[in-house]
Design a protein around this nucleic acid. Structure first.
Lengths: 180, 180
DNA sequence: CCGTTACCGAACATCATGTTCGTGACCATG
DNA sequence: CATGGTCACGAACATGATGTTCGGTAACGG
């Protein structure tokens, strides 16, 4: 890829992350992004079709990072049973922590659905095998509950950033029993 | 209040609910509302400062209805302990069911935060006494989890409308143990 | 060195929100 | 019924954001 392309793309992402730490996604304008990134308006739109497309790429990149790192670890260790899931969850939290500063900006208002959409899809895969059909509640309901419980735990974390990943993980497993 | 005022206000609400059943809040324009309500643009803005203000009024009205009816019932019966909360929850679900058709429109994308903001605030009050400090997880975390679990149960219900309020209530208490 | 490709920036089109204003209809009083 | 005050009307306007077009310029890579 052309060096100029990389530079522009990088500058846009950089500016975007910076803005997200001070303002909610909905209130960030393309103008602010291109001013801070110091690229032309046209350049922005050749890289990203819309503002939403930027957010999507951004989220996709975060989660690829967060979850692929997790998969590597999984290959290396290959635990089984309860311990494995706990380790994975904690590990995910560690990787999410790196992007913590952006979370409030993304999660407030409009960007929420994009971010959570990606996140919950990934979590759904991860928890899908952990649900046992036991009571009357449909599989779907229970899976949905666990996915949301974890997503909300992360959101809660964003408002109480002083806790460690291990603590958050602990709170989650304590509050949502039955996860293996 | 002037009859003309009531008529306009009612017409706007009516049009809004109707539109919400077919389109997400974010995609509904003021133009659509005033066309369907058959009122002037000026009229709309004398009744509601902004489009968001309309949504807020709308949500406020729904929840006043849903929760105040619940409080009446509470006064009449005044159960205590587990049974009471279950009855209240089921009752809330019954009242929410009346507005079910609007939910997908409100919950997708932008309106979500307004609706959920109101909803969770109310639920927070309701569940606040039900949380016992037992494990390591902070009170705040546990309360947040229960509130969200219920809110998400309602959202799930919106995607699976064939279940009854009792069933949803049952799923909720089965999935989230420890609620009194 | 040269063709290709990306960037620039200013202007433009479009669309939705919210405002202004003069006019006319309605309503609650005397 | 009369009359003053309130509300509704609609067209035009201001604003602000998104996304597009285009001719010119500079950097890249072979």
């Amino acid at each position: 890829m052309d060096r100029r392309q990389r530079k522009s793309r990088q500058a846009i992402f950089r500016a975007f992350t910076e803005l997200l730490q001070e303002e909610s996604y909905a209130r960030i304008t393309v103008q602010q992004i291109i001013d801070l990134a110091d690229v032309g308006r046209t350049t922005f739109y050749t890289h990203f079709e819309t503002k939403d497309a930027l957010l999507k790429s951004f989220c996709a990149e975060i989660f690829e990072h967060v979850f692929s790192a997790d998969l590597n670890k999984e290959k290396t260790h290959d635990f089984s049973g309860e311990h494995d899931t706990k380790a994975r969850v904690t590990h995910i939290l560690y990787h999410l922590e790196e992007h913590m500063a952006c979370l409030p900006g993304i999660l407030s208002g409009d960007g929420d659905s994009v971010f959570m959409g990606y996140f919950k899809a990934r979590l759904g895969e991860m928890f899908s095998e952990s649900v046992r059909e036991s009571g009357k509640a449909p599989y779907d309901f229970v899976l949905n509950h666990r996915v949301n419980a974890f997503a909300e735990a992360v959101r809660w974390w964003g408002r109480h950033p002083d806790y460690t990943p291990e603590e958050i993980s602990g709170f989650f497993f304590e509050t949502v029993p039955g996860v293996r």
